Amino acid sequence: MSDPPQEGAGTPREEGRSLTVAEAATVMRVSKLAVHRMVRSGALPAIRTGRSQRIPRQAVHDYLTGTAAKLGSFG
């Protein structure tokens, strides 16, 4: 028997194109409630599948990059 795949880099879960709210919150270092608020306000796009929401990985990257650019422009 082969060993079950480990979570981490290179696994299908890691290479997916969308994140759960909890995963997005971890990546962004904010609470799940904050991610839900960003989705509700339209600041972060999400795809609803049943009762859950999936956030495109690229959208999280774009949000973080845009936020960092805004913070860097104060100097």
Rank of each mutant, 00 (worst) to 15 (best):
Arg48His: 11
Met28Asp: 04
Ala43Asp: 14
Leu71Tyr: 05
Lys70Gln: 11
Phe74Lys: 09
Gly16Leu: 12
Thr65Tyr: 06
Arg54Phe: 08
Val60Thr: 01
Pro12Gly: 10
Gly66Phe: 02
Glu23Ile: 02
Met1Arg: 15
Ser52Arg: 11
Gly75Tyr: 07
Gln58Glu: 14
His36Glu: 06
Pro56Phe: 02
Ser52Asn: 10
Ala22Thr: 09
Leu44Pro: 10
Ala69Trp: 03
Gln6His: 12
Ala43Thr: 09
Asp3Asn: 15
Pro45Gly: 08
His61Gln: 08
Glu7Lys: 12
Ala25Thr: 08
Met1Leu: 15
Asp3Lys: 15
Ser18Glu: 12
Val35Arg: 00
Tyr63Phe: 11
Asp3Gly: 08
Gly50Ser: 09
Lys32Ile: 05
Ser2Thr: 14
Pro5Lys: 14
Gly50Phe: 06
Leu33Cys: 04
Lys32Ser: 14
Leu44Tyr: 07
Gly42Val: 05
His61Pro: 00
Glu14Arg: 14
Val27Trp: 11
Gly42Leu: 04
Ala43Gln: 14
Met38Asp: 03
Ala24Ile: 03
Met28Ala: 13
Val39Asn: 01
Pro56Lys: 04
His36Asn: 13
Thr65Gln: 09
Arg29Asn: 10
Ala22Asp: 09
Ser18Cys: 13
Glu23Asp: 15
Thr20Tyr: 11
Ala25Gln: 09
Ala34Glu: 06
Glu14Ile: 08
Ile47Leu: 12
Gly8Pro: 12
Lys32His: 07
Leu71Gly: 02
Phe74Asp: 07
Val30Gln: 01
Leu44Ile: 07
Gln58Val: 08
Asp62Leu: 03
Thr11Val: 10
Leu19Ile: 02
Ile55Glu: 08
Arg57Phe: 00
Ala69Cys: 03
Thr67Leu: 11
Thr26Phe: 04
Val30Cys: 05
Gly75Val: 11
Arg48Gly: 10
Leu33Thr: 09
Thr67Glu: 09
Gly42Ala: 06
Arg29Lys: 13
Arg57Lys: 13
Leu19Gly: 03
Met28Phe: 02
Arg40Met: 10
His36Cys: 06
Val21Ala: 08
Arg13Val: 12
Asp3Cys: 10
Ser18Ala: 15
Val27Lys: 14
Gly16Tyr: 06
Tyr63Gly: 00
Thr49Ile: 13
Pro4Trp: 12
Arg54Trp: 06
Met28Val: 04
Tyr63His: 09
Leu64Ala: 03
Gly16Cys: 13
Ser41Asp: 15
Gln53Ala: 09
Arg13Pro: 00
Ala46Met: 09
His36Val: 01
Gly50Asp: 10
Val27Arg: 15
Ala68Thr: 04
Asp62Cys: 01
Val60Cys: 01
Leu64Trp: 02
Glu7Val: 12
Ile47Trp: 07
Thr49Tyr: 04
Ile55Lys: 03
Pro4Lys: 12
